[in-house]
Amino acid sequence: MKIKVVDTTLRDGSHAVEHQFTPQQVQAVVKGLDEAGVYCAEVGHGAGIGGSVLQYGLGKHDTVELIRAAKDVSKNMKIGTLLVPGLGTMEDLKAGKDAGLDMVRVAVHCTEGDVGAQHVKLGKSLGLESIMFFMMTHMTSPEELAEQAVMAEDYGADVIYFADSAGFMSPNQFADRIIAARKRISIPIGVHTHNNIGLGVGNAIAGIEAGATYVDGATEGLGAGSGNGNTAAIVVVLDKMGYQTGCDWYKLVENGQKNVRPLVRHSLEITGDSITLGAAGIYSSFLLHVKESSEKYNIDPRLIYDELARRKVVGGQEDQIIDICQEILAERENK
């Protein structure tokens, strides 16, 4: 069985470096991934193309510029990006295509596929591999998620992705989602995982065993929260299990040591904060924002995560941290 490996270091990893990637850094990593046999490298702001906003943090370089830089040095590997409808626009996607984009992943909350229908269709008409990428899939049932996947297939998506964006799920919970969708759609399914509770690699493998044929990983695990499943480790496991990825795991390791490890700013280990985030089921990119606010105001991050969970926030609602902290401060003053 062949598995396509998508490396998200240069997009999801953007969250972990506060969106400061330079075109030179992108090119070095892309060259390494290309030589290692990776199917596609995803590049851009953490929130995708058009995602450079105050809400997430402004990007040092525009996503379009980074796509162009990546494309310039990639010989065999596809260059992809993420687009979050409601944030990135169809104009942004056209600009990405002009810069050399091969693949777009239209990222929607797990129950909101229709919001991205236009963008998936535009991707197709631009000749891109056009993927619908469902985020925060722990927040809906396998059956409802399968229903969304059927809709996405109708829009013309080439692949459906399921993301455990909060790094929340157990392997069987994640696998149930792939199994339910597998019964309903005929296009390939991909999986994207986070390592907040230590299941970055494990859940990627669980997803493949359940029928996924695309898998995301990040070099050195560089991604939001405690990062994504480590690409090299995923490839090693898949090798052992007899899947064909076309990737050379040791070249991935070397690329990581040489080009990615020096960029790591904060620990990508499983920490108390990442476990608390994962347990609460909060979108992984909240990690650094909560950390900053909790340190600035001397608030226990657990209090912030609990309130975020009570409010049932989804991806893109980092602004809720601001008033949660202000409310906690006001309460403290009243005491």
Partner: peptide
């Protein structure tokens, strides 16, 4: 302008953060 649709139940009110 950035828009987020939140499916939470009970349904949250409209909220606008302005920077």
């Amino acid at each position: 302008v950035m828009t987020v649709f939140n499916p939470a139940v009970p349904e949250p009110p409209m909220r606008n953060t302005i920077f």
